[in-house]
Amino acid sequence: MAKARVKVPKSVKKGEVFEVKTLISHKMETGQRKDKKTGKKIPRMIINKFVCTYNGKEVFTSDWHPAISANPYMAFFVKAGESGNLDFTWTDDKGKATKKSAKVTVTG
């Protein structure tokens, strides 16, 4: 199963724009490689969707194609509103989702 890492600042000021970094372990099989032994194409198996919600509301989403490298790294920005949760979901070609959550403390 894919393993995800996320990094957000421990605390941010209200209105501050901060970077969110994410990394997930995944082969991102393109569907174009051939098995060296059998000569058959290895079926495509990628994470095709990444969603980040902030206190339940979508703040950033992304559609990925096989051109995204293995072990996808995705960094983006979020503007600090209220303290709460950033929830991350990566969904693969089979509809299987990997989830991760991070707490954000907003001061001031």
Partner: peptide
């Protein structure tokens, strides 16, 4: 890829 932002993104910048 396609990246979708919202005003809550604060900044339209991505790294991958």
């Amino acid at each position: 890829a396609t990246f979708r932002f919202t005003p809550a993104s604060g900044k339209a910048r991505i790294s991958t």
